[in-house]
């Protein structure tokens, strides 16, 4: 049984007097224990909304969530709010994009780590503080004894993200969701944080959902990658398949816009033309059609279905990039 089995998850935002907006559209994917799964796509494609829906953290009003989120076979969407709250931070951890604003500004780092331990592992304050120090040490924060007493604004961005990782992993959750964990950090720090995350999930056997707009981030990290476009999964493949033989024109475009270390200096990246603002609704065809180099008539006649590929992935495209074309 998969650790997490997301089935036909949809999130529709509906504000009074406005047209309903489908941010997540029948998304399905699974996460096996200990596995790292990527959710990739441009900003606005529904990555964060997907993760918040899994966590049960969407605003109480103004949206409708349908489908199933099976964790260990039990549907999280059907849990009582109190039961779901007990699982957050204990069974599923989450780290967010902006480490500074994700920490409580008026509470020292150490106390923030300790509070999770008190909350979910029933530790007393002293034991929790001691454990907090060890956790800060484990995520590579130097001089953890001193950091225990420091406030979030007093430490660097990289340290803060390390502290957040320590908090999220404090209770050894079986699943960690990282929503763009390195986007707000300096490039040099990004690699360190990714390495740390990989090392920690490998050591602890925690499954990881890695959310990013940057395929470069998932390159060394993910076992499976789900590419999202306009709230739908458009391609799913194992990492090596994806990087070797991406079939969806959108994935292809993303891969071509990843900066490559071996490309000659000054070479322009081939960004995908247009933006998500050009999307057409899925009901009328392929949302990517206005930007797609491979577009054919069928693409504007209705939504293309998600179909299994020969290599064990899934693909939603009428005219995919031929299998032989390798990425430059």
């Amino acid at each position: 049984m998969s650790l997490l089995d997301v089935r036909d998850l949809s999130v529709v935002f509906q504000r009074r007097g406005e047209r309903p907006f489908t941010a997540v559209d029948k998304v399905s994917f699974t996460v096996e224990p200990g596995q790292t799964v990527g959710l990739v796509g441009e900003s606005g494609c529904g990555k964060s909304v997907t993760s918040l829906a899994i966590m049960g953290l969407l605003p109480r009003r103004g949206n409708k969530v349908t489908g199933e989120v099976l964790f260990d076979g039990a549907d999280l969407l059907k849990l009582r709010p109190d039961d779901m709250r007990d699982r957050r931070g204990r069974d599923i951890g989450m780290i967010f994009q902006d480490p500074l604003s994700s920490l409580n500004p008026v509470i020292p780092i150490g106390i923030q780590v300790a509070e999770v331990l008190e909350r979910h592992r029933g530790m007393d304050h002293k034991a929790a503080l001691k454990e907090a120090k060890e956790l800060l040490d484990a995520v590579g924060i130097p001089d953890p004894m001193r950091r225990l007493k420091e406030y979030p604004h007093q430490i660097s961005g990289g340290m803060r993200q390390r502290a957040l990782i320590a908090i999220a992993l404090a209770c050894k959750p079986r699943l960690l969701i990282a929503d763009e964990p390195t986007t707000a950090l300096d490039v040099t720090i990004q690699a360190q944080i990714l390495t740390l995350l990989k090392q920690l999930v490998d050591e602890t056997g925690t499954a990881l959902i890695m959310i990013t707009h940057d395929l470069g981030v998932v390159a060394g990290l993910c076992d499976t990658v789900n590419v999202l476009y306009g709230g739908k999964v458009v391609e799913r493949a194992r990492r090596h398949e994806l990087f070797g033989h991406a079939r969806h024109p959108y994935t292809h475009g993303l891969l071509n816009s990843v900066p490559r270390l071996d490309s000659p200096r000054g070479e322009r990246l081939h960004a995908i033309p247009g933006s998500v603002a050009d999307n057409i609704p899925w009901a009328e065809g392929c949302a990517f059609a206005p930007r797609c180099p491979n577009v054919v008539d069928a693409c504007l006649e209705g939504p293309p279905p998600l179909e299994p590929t020969a290599t064990g992935g899934d693909l939603r495209c009428n005219n995919p990039v031929s299998e032989e074309v390798a990425v430059p």
């Binding site: 953290l57 709250r85 920490l103 509070e115 909350r119």
Partner: peptide, 25 residues
């Protein structure tokens, strides 16, 4: 705020969201 969302993601109880996050800040 983000830190309240982050606290919710840790299962912090509503009472503590108010007393530890919303009020002191």
């Amino acid at each position: 705020s983000d830190h309240v969302l982050a606290a919710r993601a840790l299962g912090v109880k509503e009472r503590n969201i108010v007393l530890r996050h919303m009020l002191p800040n």
